[in-house]
């Protein structure tokens, strides 16, 4: 058997095993690999920084725990940045996990340490069924969509809730997307009808589809653990992203190696077949 044929027949299980070994190295020994901050992350950060004092950001949280590792670093860093600014925000859940995820991450952040008060500076609202219809309803008539917050408390007691009646009261939308088609619905309901710009936090696999809207409709976005890590570095709030990104980057190395070996094997075999034919 030629070397080229052997290269083509390496069992794919070896690739998985090698990749796990490579991924484990930064998990056990954090490395701090260098990182380049991308344009969408800079746009994301600058958009939040440039919001006028007192602006209210509407967070549409539809992402779920199935991809929590993709979201954790991005949401943690984003909430820290937002809590450190003189702006307010309210998070809606268009997926059942959305508010649960925001609540879990908030518990680890402690908003009081940023001088922020629940109900006055931020709100966590419950899951609202209906997907795009729910988004449209919040944009049209916010007060009609919920009566209690995520914790079951009456919303009318909160100052922030009473400031909002519809899309015109929001300065920006932050979409924590649970699918690659989420951005389309956000654009339809918030940008096209109400003219609001949208920032996005989404899984890495959705970045090619969301990039269609960058930078005019969507001035910035964070995709996957890498996006979150970039915001951690840019904002100066370290979080869980660095180790995750290092591990991910190292885990990709065997894939690159096998990609090269596979191609050498494929083209080498073809070359040999041609030689034999002649």
């Amino acid at each position: 058997m030629s070397i080229y044929k052997k290269l083509r027949e390496i069992p794919e299980g070896y690739l998985g095993l090698l990749s796990i070994v490579f991924m484990l190295i930064p998990v056990l020994y954090p490395m701090g690999l260098p990182l380049q901050i991308s344009g969408p992350t800079k746009g994301f950060y600058n958009t939040l920084q440039n919001l006028p004092e007192g602006s209210i950001v509407c967070i549409d949280a539809s992402g779920g725990f199935a991809s929590y590792d993709e979201f954790e670093a991005s949401i943690t860093a984003t909430l820290k940045v937002m809590l450190s600014l003189p702006i307010k925000w309210m998070a809606w859940g268009y997926g059942t996990d959305g508010p649960v995820m925001i609540d879990l991450i908030l518990k680890g952040i402690n908003p009081a340490s940023f001088g922020k008060e629940y109900g006055k500076d931020y709100l966590v609202l419950p899951y609202i069924a209906g997907v795009e219809m729910a988004v449209a309803a919040v944009a049209e008539d916010t007060q009609a969509v919920a009566t209690t917050d995520f914790y079951g408390n009456d919303l009318s007691q909160y100052d922030l809730w009473n400031e909002i009646s519809g899309a015109e009261d929001f300065a920006l939308v932050l979409s924590i997307s649970g699918s690659c088609l989420n951005m389309d619905q956000e654009v339809r309901q918030w940008y096209t009808i109400h003219g609001l710009n949208i920032l996005e936090i989404n899984m890495a696999c959705c970045s090619p589809m969301s990039m269609n809207y960058y930078p005019d409709v969507m001035p910035g976005g964070l995709w996957g653990a890498k996006g979150g890590t970039e915001l951690e570095v840019l904002s100066g709030y370290p979080g869980p992203g660095a180790r995750l990104s290092d591990s991910q980057n190292l885990g990709l190395m065997p894939f690159l190696l096998f990609l090269i070996l596979g191609n050498v094997g494929y083209f080498g075999s073809k070359y040999l077949e041609k030689e034999e034919d002649q």
């Binding site: 696999c205 995709w223 995750l244 591990s247 991910q248 885990g251």
Partner: peptide, 15 residues
């Protein structure tokens, strides 16, 4: 991009 997503999930479990 899909591959990166899967890798993150594996890394998350490993961590």
């Amino acid at each position: 991009a899909e591959l990166i997503w899967y890798l993150t999930l594996v890394v998350g479990i490993l961590i």
